[in-house]
Design a protein around this nucleic acid. Sequence first.
DNA 1: TATTGTTATACTCTATAACTATA
DNA 2: TATAGTTATAGAGTATAACAATA
Lengths: 143, 143
Amino acid sequence: MADKPRRPDLAAMLAPLLRELISAEEPVLAAHDVSMWGYVVLSALDGSPIRTQAALAAAIGADKTRIIRDLDELQERGLIERMADPDDRRARLLAITDTGRAVKNAVQAEIQRGEERWLGELNAEERRTFLRVLGRLASRESG
Amino acid sequence: MADKPRRPDLAAMLAPLLRELISAEEPVLAAHDVSMWGYVVLSALDGSPIRTQAALAAAIGADKTRIIRDLDELQERGLIERMADPDDRRARLLAITDTGRAVKNAVQAEIQRGEERWLGELNAEERRTFLRVLGRLASRESG
DNA sequence: TATTGTTATACTCTATAACTATA
DNA sequence: TATAGTTATAGAGTATAACAATA
């Protein structure tokens, strides 16, 4: 039977786009001396504090062992707080500081300004729909 | 000044989505015994043959050294042809075979069926706009 | 015995450098 | 001398296993 013309796979379109977006972010992150994971951590904590490092790691899709260095660094620079939970001294209560929030906001503003290179090509309706759909797909439960 | 509510960064939304899409692809690729890069190569060659391995690597955003194993394997299994260019015996003319195209189409059909887990949540207008915009952003020149 | 955080180790993936054969 | 393809090596990023402290 004849082949129907097919669209490219989602992953095949997303992968190069994500690569470019990350390349565009790197100089911004470097200028603020924040690592990619560090920025992800700050963004995750910006919403609300998180009770354990394991929970934070799960929330951002990282291994709990690989964010430790980033947490150390963020803490040393005063961008996050890592307090021992008095109720369970194994756990570390994680929270962003005012300084951390300021850095995160500055980085985010610059990144989103850079993203206009892409979003600027869309008309208002495309932009609205694309961002809404993307937000929904990204926050989808992975069951 | 007060902070305006900001949307998440594009990369922050795309990264977890892409991770999930890739996880969903892996069992399909494994079932057909094709590697991720192997599938990308087959897809790239499906449109038209490519004259050199370096050009193929550039087209799919890979390093020319890291696709060699995949090309070896694809060739051994008869999914691609790698003919020496008679005009320049350094170059290898790369083309997909009928078998290769059949494998690629089977994999792609399964993958796209799986993607309905995501796209199925969209209404017709959202789906149309999202795919159109994504296609445009993904194929954008990276200047 | 299970869990939190941590460190040390191994593994995978990718990029770099060096080589050959052609041009 | 430059380029296509290849191989070998080194590096980055990540996951796995083992450990100390606490529950």
